[in-house]
């Protein structure tokens, strides 16, 4: 007597024991790694470029600070470099926004007004900033600024947005910027004269507040420019650190290689362990009006 075939139903007693496991239909609807597109190495390396650029700016800043403190760099030179960087950056910004709807001269006028205002405020505040942490020992300052730079690196927004889309700043990226600026303020308070304090904080604002905004738009530039920028920023940081400390140079080099060469490789390698399990037990995603509604 042949038994009826086993059916996946509960409403009927079947002539099979309760622990019968059908060989073919058990876990038949299990799907592993659906919608899985593996990462490839070179696009990942390109995607890591913003991280290297960010790290590069931090190292450049630290090197500039050390040189200012050792008085091997004139604060006036730094000031002029900052202003030149600002103008160059503003030009690039305008070029990248060329395709976006024209915002008229009023927004440019506003930008000019606010940058002048900021320039003057900072100039007025420089003596205050110089003596801000006079009562604190330098060791605490080094530790504090190191922690804040670490926080800045971890929380920074390395993504990119397209021109024209006015996306909201995320909380983490705002926190990141604040950490970097406050770190530079406490570092600046170790400097000997008002002009160095002023130029360092101005430089920091350019590097940590304005440059990330510009960097977010770099998603549209061709990869070759992205790579060129990354290489030149890291080369600049090398050349600034080289004469200060060979150890830090080696450390910097190690960090760059890890971030940009090794880490993408590790990610590509680790994908073989990806095991995403999907099946009928998953919570379905309801579609209303053609859009999926996520849990809130």
């Amino acid at each position: 007597m042949s038994r009826p075939t086993w059916k996946r139903i509960l409403w009927q007693r079947q002539p099979y024991p309760d622990n019968y496991i059908p060989a073919d239909s058990f876990l038949a609807s299990l799907r592993r790694n659906p919608n899985f597109t593996p990462y490839t190495y070179w696009p990942l390396v390109l995607a890591c470029c913003p991280i290297t650029q960010h790290l590069g700016t931090i190292f450049i800043f630290v090197a500039v600070f050390v040189r200012l403190q050792q008085r091997s760099l004139d604060a006036r030179v730094l000031l002029w470099i900052s202003v030149a960087c600002f103008l160059a950056g503003y030009l690039v910004w305008e070029v990248l926004n060329y395709s976006a709807p024209p915002r008229g001269p009023s927004s440019r006028f506003k930008a000019l007004k606010s940058s002048l205002l900021f320039f003057l405020t900072l100039m007025g505040l420089a003596p205050v900033l110089r003596t801000l942490t006079a009562a604190t020992s330098s060791d605490s300052i080094w530790a504090l600024s190191a922690c804040q730079f670490l926080l800045n690196t971890l929380l920074a927004d390395y993504g990119c947005t397209n021109a024209g889309s006015q996306s909201q700043e995320r909380l983490t990226s705002v926190l990141s910027m604040n950490a970097a600026v406050s770190s530079s303020v406490v570092l600046a308070s170790r400097l000997p004269d008002d002009l160095s304090v002023f130029s360092l904080v101005l430089f920091a604002v350019h590097l940590f507040a304005l440059f990330p905004m510009l960097r977010h738009r770099f998603g549209v530039v061709p990869p070759i420019l992205q790579v060129t920028l990354t290489v030149s920023i890291s080369a600049l940081s090398f050349s600034l650190i080289m004469s200060l400390s060979p150890f830090v140079t080696a450390l910097t080099f190690g960090i760059y290689v890890t971030v940009n060469v090794v880490a993408p490789g590790v990610l590509v390698w680790a994908q073989r362990y990806k095991n995403e399990i999907r099946g009928p037990w998953d919570v379905a995603v309801p579609r209303v009006n053609g859009n999926e509604i996520q849990c809130n």
Partner: peptide, 18 residues
């Protein structure tokens, strides 16, 4: 487990889509 509990002629099924 809903498809298992009743025979097909007592229940109508829909995908989770409006």
């Amino acid at each position: 487990g809903v498809p298992e509990i009743l025979p097909e002629d007592m229940i109508s099924f829909a995908y989770p889509d409006e």
